[in-house]
């Protein structure tokens, strides 16, 4: 079984701070990590490899330094890693990203594609399902358990108020939740090999992809503006009877469209 895990290198958002003067993200000195949901996907792939045998490839799209995330994946036990990196892919929205990843996945070949449910920097949860659509394969998102049964997969799909157990044919794409497992650590021997490994870097020229559909130019959506939520001014405090307090709270929540 060929498993490809799509991983994204993201800034550790628990460390992200806003520059109060410019209102932009301070990225300097912020450590990068493998996106947590994606790392769970990697662990799930390695667990399947251990249980039923599989070849696991980690695939990432990003700037050259995303290679570090791929080396971590190799050190955890992935067999291969591929980086898609080219300035011409820059500024891609989820459509252009998924088009690009789908073309790399076609080149790699796969029985199972694992993606994290969503990345902690963008939180869109869109790239996985969009890849599945471009490849014309079934998808299940919000997956918290995966088992191979015969030539199909049995998965647990979470909803807000419950779950489903589904049987899915392969090839297919699953998006997984970080709650599903605790990713293993890199092993010492693995780290050494991983940091010597040659990681192929694929550019636009290595992929069979429509150049009109990649990068900023190929993105249907555009960021019109971005801004930080204004820094908080001290809130109002009322010293009142409970009844009056309740009325004040409701009034404020309605004003803020919270209720």
């Amino acid at each position: 079984m060929n498993i490809v895990v799509c991983i994204k290198q993201v800034p550790d958002t628990t460390e992200v701070r806003i520059d109060p003067a410019t209102g932009t993200l301070i990225r300097e000195g912020v450590p990068s990590i493998i996106n947590p949901d994606d790392k769970a996907g990697l662990e799930a792939a390695l667990a399947l490899k251990g249980a039923v045998g599989a070849t696991v490839t980690a695939l990432s799209m990003g700037p050259p330094q995303a290679e570090i995330a791929l080396r971590e994946a190799l050190a955890m036990g992935a067999d291969h890693a591929v980086l898609i990196s080219d300035k011409r892919f820059g500024g891609a929205d989820t459509w252009a990203t998924s088009i690009t990843l789908a073309s790399a996945l076609r080149r790699l070949g796969f029985d199972l594609i694992l993606c994290g449910r969503q990345a902690i920097d963008g939180d869109t949860a869109q790239v996985g399902p969009q890849i599945a659509e471009h490849l014309g394969i079934p998808q299940v998102s919000y997956v918290s358990e995966i088992q191979k049964v015969g030539d199909r997969l049995q998965v647990k799909r979470m909803f807000e108020n419950g779950y489903q157990r589904l049987s899915v044919p392969m090839p297919c794409l699953l998006t997984v939740l970080k709650e599903m497992n605790a990713p293993r650590y890199m092993n010492v021997g693995g780290v050494f090999d991983a940091f010597r490994a040659e990681i192929p870097v694929w550019t636009v020229d290595d992929l069979d992809v429509d150049r009109a559909q990649i990068g900023l130019k190929g993105s249907p959506t555009r960021v019109k503006k971005s801004y930080t939520k204004g820094t908080k001014s001290a809130g109002k405090v009322y010293e009142v009877e409970p009844q009056e307090g309740a009325r004040i709270i409701v009034e404020h929540l309605r004003e803020k469209f919270i209720i």
């Binding site: 929205d93 790239v127 996985g128 969009q130 471009h134 998808q139 998102s141 919000y142 959506t221």
Partner: peptide
């Protein structure tokens, strides 16, 4: 959890963009 599965798939099929959440 249903809409976030359906919308990206359907928007990709009709070849348009999608903004999340």
């Amino acid at each position: 959890t249903l809409g976030r599965d359906l919308a990206p798939r359907a928007s990709a099929r009709v070849k348009t963009g999608l903004t999340a959440d």
